[in-house]
Design a protein around this nucleic acid. Structure first.
Lengths: 253, 253
DNA sequence: CGGGAAGTTGAAGAGCGTCAAAAGTAGTGG
DNA sequence: CCACTACTTTTGACGCTCTTCAACTTCCCG
């Protein structure tokens, strides 16, 4: 049932219920529980009202596509709940997941007019959607929003470089250890449980993120489990039984 | 002669001649031949004068380090001549080159206060240097400079994702083909020769960029040469003898 | 012309991928 | 409530690509 939702939200087959304008409501953003994590954190009341005027809410079900690589970049998004993966494909189907996005993460500012990657929900996810033209107009008007976005982009660049180091130079064990620690750190930053860390994505998604196959990911989890560095718990949770050893592994020592 | 210059320019051992303030000169930037490629392209006269007031020039010799990962991020730079590599290291010496920078490229806007990567000259290179605090103050004053920087950052993010696809999912042949085409495209963008493309970096640097060993890079060049897709010319130039086939290869078809 | 670094080539081996099958898990319907 | 189905995960056996180690060649620059 991987593709119960074949249509992407930005495709022609958008169900009306999926994109709800929220502009009419009394300031949906001021009630937003994850605002401090997002682009909307630290905005003035004025800025937030302008943003709230153009925002819609998008709901995605597991496996549902938000947009595909090459689609015209009509919207920018901010994840408010759930997990979204962004990925690039080769013509023969090889897939590289370039990032997992969690509440607070921003996506959709392409440098030309089409998305440079596809985006798909890992589990049930909710996003704020901004028409790109209007969003960019707001950026011109509110430079400190732009500064916040620049800082987020710089941070993502640093993360991307770390990922290149992982993909280019780390072994399978080092990659998996790094991945678990990243997930854990990210959860901590968002105020979620960091030790039995929640791993919502499939082995296949993890493989596509780490440049490995499903089988190698699975085998590596088994190795780490037998070495008592981790333990697999029900509900997709993984306990970091020996965090120090994991850190050592991840850093390549 | 890899390490004739052990000191990095930002280290304590900076030779005085290497960093020359140019603020006193009559607008060094207005005479800059590569301005249209850089952050300085499309600035107003006012903006350019403010930028010129804080700029210095830095000259690097082959193999010389500009700064290392973890150094306090004191300056931002713009490459005006030559080639610079940026890289990350693992404690045991494994190296991942995360980018080669050419005239027009910008570096040094770290998201915290230290550089997240090292930078080193591949060949004789010249950079414009801006004290980071002053540069950021200028950004606050001139939002369109910030917008230009945001666009550059977004572009670099797209490039980084392409590189993750390469590192995670492409074969050695595909990586080398992709690399040569990227170099060629970049040269074209800067108005340099794109067909016998100039390859200033060593096999070892290329390997560290593509997640391969020197030997594999060398072997792959030989393969491509024997298959008549490329031909190695003197002076570090490579002719793309069968560009269509290279494109096919690079895209993984 | 000589010495040292960079590049090329060869042989052997390791790590991860591929193919295949078994075990576990979840959702569905009688 | 349990059986049925479909998918995900795990495990095994084998093979291939790339790495490792080593020797040789070419290219610079003094």
């Amino acid at each position: 049932m991987k593709h119960r939702f074949l249509e992407s939200v930005e495709g022609q087959g958008l169900a009306p219920a999926l994109r709800r304008p929220e502009g009419g409501l009394p300031s949906p953003c001021s009630a937003c529980a994850v605002r401090h994590l997002t682009i909307c954190g630290g905005l003035t009341l004025d800025e937030m009202q302008h943003l709230a005027a153009i925002v819609s809410s998008v709901e995605l079900y597991p496996g549902q596509s938000l947009f595909q690589e090459g689609d015209p970049a009509a919207h920018a998004y901010s994840v408010t709940a759930g997990t979204v993966k962004i990925y690039k494909l080769l013509p023969d189907g090889r897939c590289q997941v370039t990032g997992f996005l969690f509440p607070g993460d921003f996506l959709g500012l392409a440098d030309n007019d089409s998305y440079a990657y596809g985006a798909e929900a890992v589990n049930h996810a909710v996003l704020c959607s901004y028409p790109r033209r209007k969003f960019e107009a707001l950026l011109e008007r509110f430079p400190d929003m732009e500064r916040r976005l620049l800082n987020m982009a710089n941070h993502e660049l640093a993360v991307a470089q770390e990922q290149m180091l992982l993909l280019g130079r780390k072994t399978a064990k080092e990659r998996v250890a790094s991945f678990l620690l990243m997930l854990s750190q990210g959860a901590a930053r968002r105020g979620q449980r960091e030790d039995p860390v929640f791993v919502p994505m499939s082995r296949s998604d993890i493989g596509d993120y780490l440049g490995l196959t499903t089988e190698t990911v699975s085998r590596t989890f088994t190795q780490l489990r037998k070495a008592k560095l981790i333990s697999l718990e029900p509900g997709g949770r993984i306990a970091l039984a020996d965090k120090d050893a994991l850190v050592q592994l991840a850093e390549g020592a």
